[in-house]
Design a protein around this nucleic acid. Structure first.
Lengths: 214, 214
DNA sequence: CTTCTTGGATAACGGCACTATCCAAGCACG
DNA sequence: CGTGCTTGGATAGTGCCGTTATCCAAGAAG
C-alpha cells in the first residue's frame, strides 16, 4: 500500500507518518521508484503501536523510538528487554539527593522491598527509574506532611504485584517469543493508563458509596 | 517570609514562583508596600502541592489551577469535589465515535461496570474522562489484535477498587474536612504515579522470577 | 548616598509534536 | 503527447507550554 492508504487505514495524517519516518519510528517502505514506496501490514501494525504509545501511553516520540529499539533487539533475554524498555519510560526529574525528605523516602522504599521480599527488584535499587519515581512520590507526600510510611505502601505494592502477575500470565499466552516481548512491553505501557482509569473510576464509585453525592 | 525565602525553602526559583502567581496557582502574598510582599506557611504548602502535581503528577499548569479551584470550592460535597477534580485531569484525546474498535470497547467497558456492580460509576458512562480513557485504551489494544475482553479487565478493576478503598480509608483518617478533600485529590493525583512505579517494579520482579535474567 | 534587593510587567527561550510548503519525479487519462 | 494529479523527500514554520531573562521603579541596608 501507499503512504496515503497507510494514512487512511491508520487514521494518521501523511504529514505525521512522514514525521515518524524521519524520526525512525517506522521503517521506510520498500522503494518502488524514486517517488513511490510500498508499505505492508507490518508498517500498519507498527504505526498503530506507535500511536498507542504516544496517545494512550503519553510517551514522548523520542522515548517511543528508544523503547522500540529495545523491543527489536533480539540479542537480549526477555527480562532484560522488558527491563530496558521500562527503563526508557519517561522519568521523574532527578531528585535532590541532599534533600532530607528524599533520603527518608529512599530508605522507606528500600525497607518496603525487603518487607515484600522483592529480592530481584531490590538489586535495582537507586538505579531503576521506577524505584526513583517511587522515591520522589513518597518524598513529595512527606513534604506535604503526610505520614505515608511503608505500612501504607506495602498493601498497594501487593496489589500491583498481583496486577503484574496478571500481565505476565497474559504474556505467556502469546504464541511466539517476538509477540511475548511486545505483549510484555505493551503490558507495561498500555496497561498503566488503563489501571489509572480504573483507579479513578473506582475512586468515584467508592466515594459515592461512602458519602453519596450530597 | 519574602519571595526569596519562599523560593529557598521550596527549591523553586523566584521566576517560577512569579509565574505561578501570575497564573493564579498561588494567592498573592500580603502586600506590605509596593515592593514587598509577605508570604506564610500556607503559601509554602500550596507551592509544594503545586510542585507535586506538576512534577510528580505530570499535570499541566492550567490543569493544576482548575483542580485547585475545585479543591477550594467548599460549596460542594466531597464526592462532587473529588469528582470535579478528577474530571479536570489530563484527558486522552476524544476518540472517533465512528470507529468500530471504539464502539466495541465502549460496550465492553459498560459490560464491565455491570459485572462489577459499579452502579455509581455506571451513571457516569460516556461522560467521565476516566471512562473515556479506559475505552480508548481498550480500543487501542483491540486494534493491535489483542483480545482483551471484559474477563481480563474485571480482575484488574477489582484490584484498583481495593486500591481506591485504601485511598479513601486514608482520607477518612484526616482530621478536618478541608484536609480530607485535599487528601482525596492527592490520593488521586500523587498515588497514581506511585502505583505506576510499583507496577513497573512488580513487573521487573515477577519477570525476573519467572524467566531469570538470561 | 549609593548599592542591593524587592516584586511586577513583559518578552524571550527551548522543547516538542506536528503541519504546511516546495519540489522534482512519476502516473493516468483524454 | 501533454496536462494535471499524486508521490515521497526535504525544509521551514506553527502553536503550545513551562520556564527564564530582562527591565523597571520603588524600597531597604550600610
Amino acid at each position: 500500500m501507499r503512504l496515503t492508504e497507510l494514512s487512511e487505514r491508520s487514521g494518521v495524517s501523511t504529514a505525521t507518518i512522514k514525521y515518524y519516518l524521519r524520526e525512525g519510528l517506522l521503517l521506510p517502505g520498500r522503494e518502488i521508484n524514486r517517488t513511490t514506496a510500498e508499505y505492508d501490514e507490518g508498517h500498519l501494525r507498527r504505526l498503530r503501536l506507535v500511536r498507542a504509545m504516544v496517545q494512550v501511553g503519553r510517551l514522548p516520540v523520542a522515548t517511543v523510538k528508544e523503547v522500540l529499539g529495545h523491543v527489536d533487539d533480539d540479542s537480549l533475554g526477555r527480562t532484560v528487554r522488558l527491563g530496558a524498555a521500562l527503563w526508557a519510560l519517561p522519568q521523574v526529574p532527578e531528585p535532590d539527593a541532599e534533600d532530607a525528605y528524599v533520603r527518608g523516602a529512599h530508605e522507606e522504599v528500600e525497607e518496603l522491598l525487603r518487607t515484600l521480599g522483592w529480592s530481584n527488584a531490590a538489586l535495582l535499587t537507586s538505579v531503576s527509574p521506577a524505584f526513583r519515581s517511587l522515591v520522589v512520590a513518597v518524598a513529595a507526600l512527606r513534604r506535604l506532611g503526610y505520614d505515608w510510611g511503608p505500612e501504607l505502601l506495602v498493601d498497594r505494592a501487593r496489589l500491583m504485584h498481583r496486577a503484574a502477575v496478571l500481565d505476565l500470565d497474559f504474556v505467556d499466552t502469546q504464541p511466539s517469543e517476538a509477540e511475548r516481548v511486545e505483549a510484555a512491553v505493551l503490558g507495561a505501557i498500555l496497561v498503566e493508563p488503563m489501571l489509572s482509569a480504573l483507579h479513578r473510576l473506582a475512586q468515584e464509585e467508592e466515594s459515592a458509596r461512602r458519602y453519596g453525592f450530597e
